[in-house]
Design a protein around this nucleic acid. Structure first.
Lengths: 338, 338
DNA sequence: AAGCAAACTGACAGCGCTGTCAGCATAGCG
DNA sequence: CGCTATGCTGACAGCGCTGTCAGTTTGCTT
């Protein structure tokens, strides 16, 4: 059986092509009885509209592009899941486009995607959300897009973020309440602003508790397990070593735990460790990691919704959504000596 | 500046539309000087061919679909990376399409994607590679596709796989050489044939060493951390417990390690543990996990290559590629008492 | 220099839809 | 009963390319 076209359906239903088009696109002003006839014909012929034809005629592709440069597989997968969930409901498909945030031609490469009419809009995830050149390029080219967890230039487009600095603050407070005063901090990759700025929450909590920020307790990490382990090595070699270490993400926290194991430091008896993100490693590690869970998939889903609204020309009234993190207390944190 | 079309380029270059098309599609039989003129015009106008128009006219979309139902984020990401690498080189884009392998309407849902002309071909990853109904549906509909790690019906389409049963065999042999005779095995999810069949390698190795297969040492896992932990709990509660446990994947092996920690069983002194896949957790866990590394991204890249060849109508001479696994010996395995 | 094959180029139809606009039916109203 | 407002439907052009095929030029042979 050859692929049915809109003409075949129209002929079978005894209506015009255009009416079939109306039914397919759920346009108003079609008599119920006509709609039924058309739908029956569609079912009988197993008609599926050609996306290329409708893209060409209507000048939109019903495809969204997901841009990422995130080494964390779990993050990316969660974002994909959330984005796809909304896409499915709205009849969109998702094209994935990993790219390097430090690639000079990034903006033009991405613009090409749009100018080829491959995608109708874009979803940017950190750290791409904060690449000024890219964001400005998209704005200038009037490309619809949304961002996840941007830290700068927030009026550029709709966005979704979490209260993660607040969560970092809360986590630090919890450690302080457990009696910790020397709390090490492993900062996130400086290019990855959303992670890097968790430091602000840490700093604020110390300040509130009038604990002086000891710079020797803050080390630069790069979001990787190895950088976490190296950071821990540095912190745990200090003469007066910290009694707790808060890493800006779970991979680094896992590095801290391994380094502690290798030094024979008991967790949490001698050292509390906290992470951020609740990646699978957080509960697969021993001891299981106290961390912060972010609703990544929900964020992505919400962001996609905002993008699609924008595409439909509806002014996005609430161009930003803030979602809440949750602290998960597990085995890796506790009072000293317990 | 309005978007340039092929006519604009043709006018500027002083040639016909068709010639521009030839240059863009790298067709032969264009004089070098003509090609240069056209390319100059393309560059000047920043012309980007409309994908929808060429899809409609040429009846192909230059988009491949990646189908997966794999809970392992790392696996999926690696596959995406490999597939995209080849896609980029060949000018294709990648649409991702997660789906449930136990969904009854799976085949028709996937066929819809193709009938809408959204994708030119499909890449199936396990466990979808072994869903007979889907595979047969695609064959019947003459949809070009490739599979990763299929275990059945291998003549249906080109495929790529690893020698993972052999690797499971080798891993088991290594454990035996270390002096282990009671080797527990945690099997993979029965729906996920590629993982489940690693058992065959284990069985073969025991047989060769004339170790009788003790059924109480083989427990059913479901590829998840939790199922691995539950399996370990069962094995470690045996009166005469195993001195080594080989889990069919790393998540389950991580579960074994955690369960051992909680029971105060020292690894590898009292228990050796081996996994499979070399996911990040394998080296982020303590002790680091002896495991098998598969070239997932390379497999996916190769598979994509086979698919694209197929699309170009070239008979795929070598419709199957076997790639090699590598055993990574880390801290979690050793001689008893060491 | 004529003849022929091969290399190169262009005219044009048409891929399968959607947007525009005009036309017809029906309902509501004075 | 005629008029307008509204709901509903269809004719048709055209979105921007590629495939076909015919026409033109070039290079080579004799």
């Amino acid at each position: 059986m050859a692929k049915a076209t809109i003409d075949d359906v129209a002929a079978l239903a005894g209506v015009s092509m255009k009416t079939v088009s109306r039914v397919v696109n759920k346009e108003p002003n079609v008599r119920a009885s006509t709609r039924d006839k058309v739908q029956a014909a569609i079912a009988e012929l197993e008609y599926r509209p050609s996306q290329s034809a409708r893209s060409l005629a209507a000048n939109r592709s019903y495809v969204l592009g997901l841009l990422y440069d995130n080494p964390s597989a779990n993050y990316v997968i969660d974002v994909q899941e959330g984005a796809l969930e909304t896409c499915r409901r709205a009849g969109y498909d998702l094209l994935i486009h990993p790219c390097r945030h430090d690639e000079p031609s990034l903006a033009s490469e991405v613009l090409s995607l749009v100018r080829q009419s491959r995608v109708d809009g874009l979803i940017l995830t950190p750290p791409l959300s904060d690449i000024a050149e890219l964001v400005e390029g998209l704005v200038a080219a009037q490309v619809p897009f949304v961002r996840l967890s941007p830290t700068e230039n927030k009026q550029a487009c709709p966005y979704v973020q979490t209260n993660d600095q607040e969560a970092a603050y809360d986590m630090t407070c919890q450690l302080i309440e457990l009696g910790h005063e020397r709390i090490g901090f492993i900062a996130g990759h400086p290019d990855h602003k959303a992670v890097a700025e968790r430091f602000k929450g840490y700093r604020a909590a110390l300040k509130e508790s009038r604990i002086k920020l000891d710079k020797s307790l803050v080390v630069q990490g790069y979001n990787s397990f190895e950088s976490g382990r190296a950071g821990a090595a540095q912190l745990l070699a200090l003469e007066s070593r910290p009694t707790a270490i808060f890493a800006s993400n779970d991979d680094m926290a896992a590095g801290v735990i391994i380094e502690a194991h290798h030094r024979g430091i008991a967790i949490p008896r001698e050292l509390s460790v906290a992470g951020f993100d609740d990646t699978p490693v957080a509960h697969q590690i021993f001891p299981s990691l106290t961390t912060v869970s972010q609703p990544i998939a929900d964020m992505a889903s919400k962001a996609t919704e905002l993008l699609i609204k924008q595409l439909k020309g509806k002014a996005v009234q609430m161009p930003a959504a803030i979602m809440s993190c949750r602290i998960l207390v597990r085995e890796s944190t506790g009072k000293l000596g317990k």
